[in-house]
Simulated scan of single mutants.
Amino acid sequence: MKVALVMGSISDWPVVKQTATVLDELGIDYDKKIISAHRMPDHLQQFAKNAKHEHYQAIIAAAGGAAHLPGMLAANTLVPVIGIPVFTKSLNGVDSLLSIVQMPFGVPVATVAVGSSGAKNAAFLAAQMMSMNDENIYHKLVQHRAKQSEEAIKSNEQLK
C-alpha cells in the first residue's frame, strides 16, 4: 500500500515535503511525481487511469492558482484524491482552495487547509483511510494522537 504525492511543479515541493515528512513518520510508502494539469494533460490522464493498478491507496495532489490538478486527477480515477491548496501571492491561496473544493457532484476531492496544517493533514487523512485495512497504521495513528494529547497536557506547566 502506498500513496502518490503529485505536484503541479517543483515549486510545490516545499509544501508537499511536509506531507512526505508525516508519511515517513507513520511508515507509509509514497511516490513523488510532478504532473502539470496544464502542461502534461496526457501524462496526467495516463497516471490517474493507472493509479489503482499501481496500488495507490490515495493520491495527494498539491496545486496553486487555478489548481486544476486534484480535480483532473479525480476525474480520471476512483482512487481517493486529497487536494492541498498551495499559497499564492495574489490571493493568499484562497483561489487554490476554492478551485479544489468546488468539485461537481460525483467527482469528490477531499480538500485540506491552505499551508502547513493542510499539507500535514493530507498525510493524516490518507493514513486514516489506509488504517481501515491496516492495523499497523491504525496503531501508529493512535500513538500519534496520544502523544499530541500528552504534549497539550504538559504545556499547562508553561503557564505556571
Rank of each mutant, 00 (worst) to 15 (best):
K17Q: 15
Q18Y: 07
T19R: 12
T19Y: 11
T19H: 10
A20F: 05
T21P: 02
T21L: 14
D24G: 03
L26P: 05
G27R: 02
I28D: 03
I28W: 10
I28E: 12
Y30I: 00
Y30R: 02
I34A: 11
I35H: 00
S36P: 00
S36K: 05
S36Y: 00
A37R: 04
H38L: 05
H38E: 12
M40Q: 15
P41V: 12
D42Y: 15
D42N: 15
L44M: 01
L44T: 08
Q45W: 08
Q45I: 15
Q45T: 14
Q46D: 12
A48Q: 06
N50Q: 14
N50A: 15
A51R: 02
K52E: 13
K52C: 04
H53C: 11
H53W: 12
E54Q: 12
H55I: 03
Y56L: 01
Y56E: 00
Y56V: 00
A58T: 01
A58M: 02
I59Q: 04
I59K: 05
I59T: 02
A61D: 02
A62N: 08
A63Q: 12
A63K: 10
A63P: 11
G64T: 05
G65W: 06
A66E: 00
A66V: 04
A66Q: 06
A67G: 04
A67S: 03
L69M: 03
L69V: 08
P70S: 02
G71F: 02
M72H: 03
L73C: 05
A74L: 04
A75I: 03
A75R: 07
A75T: 09
N76I: 10
L78R: 06
V79K: 04
V79N: 06
P80T: 14
P80V: 12
V81Y: 01
V81I: 04
V81A: 04
I82S: 10
I84H: 13
P85V: 00
V86N: 09
F87V: 08
K89N: 15
K89F: 12
V94N: 04
D95H: 02
D95N: 08
D95R: 05
S96W: 10
S99R: 07
S99P: 09
S99L: 08
S99W: 09
Q102T: 00
Q102F: 03
Q102P: 03
M103R: 07
P104T: 10
F105P: 15
G106Q: 08
P108M: 13
P108K: 14
P108E: 13
V109Q: 11
V109W: 09
V109D: 11
A110L: 06
T111R: 14
T111Q: 11
T111G: 12
V112Q: 13
A113G: 07
V114F: 00
S117P: 12
S117T: 15
G118Y: 05
A119Q: 02
N121L: 05
A123C: 13
A123D: 10
F124C: 09
L125V: 10
L125D: 09
L125Q: 09
A127V: 06
A127C: 07
A127P: 13
Q128E: 15
Q128H: 12
M129S: 06
M129G: 10
M129P: 03
M130V: 06
S131C: 09
M132G: 14
N133E: 15
N133M: 11
E135A: 13
E135P: 10
N136L: 15
N136R: 14
I137F: 15
K140P: 00
L141S: 06
L141K: 02
Q143P: 09
Q143M: 15
H144L: 15
H144V: 09
R145V: 02
R145N: 07
R145T: 01
A146R: 13
